[in-house]
Amino acid sequence: MAETPATPNPPETLQDMKEELTAVPPEAIAPVEMVQKVKIVKHSELPYAPPARFQSGKVKDFINKLLKERLGSLPAYDFEAAPALCRELADLVKYEIRDMNLPRYKIVVQSVIGESKNQGFQFASKSLWDPQTDDYSFGSFLNEHVFGVVGAWALYLT
């Protein structure tokens, strides 16, 4: 009597059969040694990561261009017109950064203009903040009549 050899654990239903045929052995998906080399890169360590970043270079270019335009054409330092001009420069830079649509960022802009008479002058800044989210940018201009420096800081509201 010839018996047909029984297959070990024959599939009971059609669904089981299909799963068995289409199943991919686990070692074919990812060999063990490969998995260990995969490094998990999180988008950011911060749970409160900002959706947009302050682009320091763009702001710097804008400031430099603005100062060249507005101060380069002045014939001399005018102490009566200077306060208004200085405030205007700060406001223009602030609006420019505000229009970059940085949600939850606070913006600080400081501008200095003065007469150049070969005097010593230095502008420096230090900050206590989170370097992962916050940034600053500086731009300056100097010719024989006037000098101008504008600094801009963006502070993220955590």
């Binding site: 913006i107 501008s111 200095v112 070969n118 010593g120």
Partner: peptide
Amino acid sequence: MQKNGAGMIMATSCF
């Protein structure tokens, strides 16, 4: 800034 008679003005603007 060194004093030598040169004028200077500073302004701040914040958002």
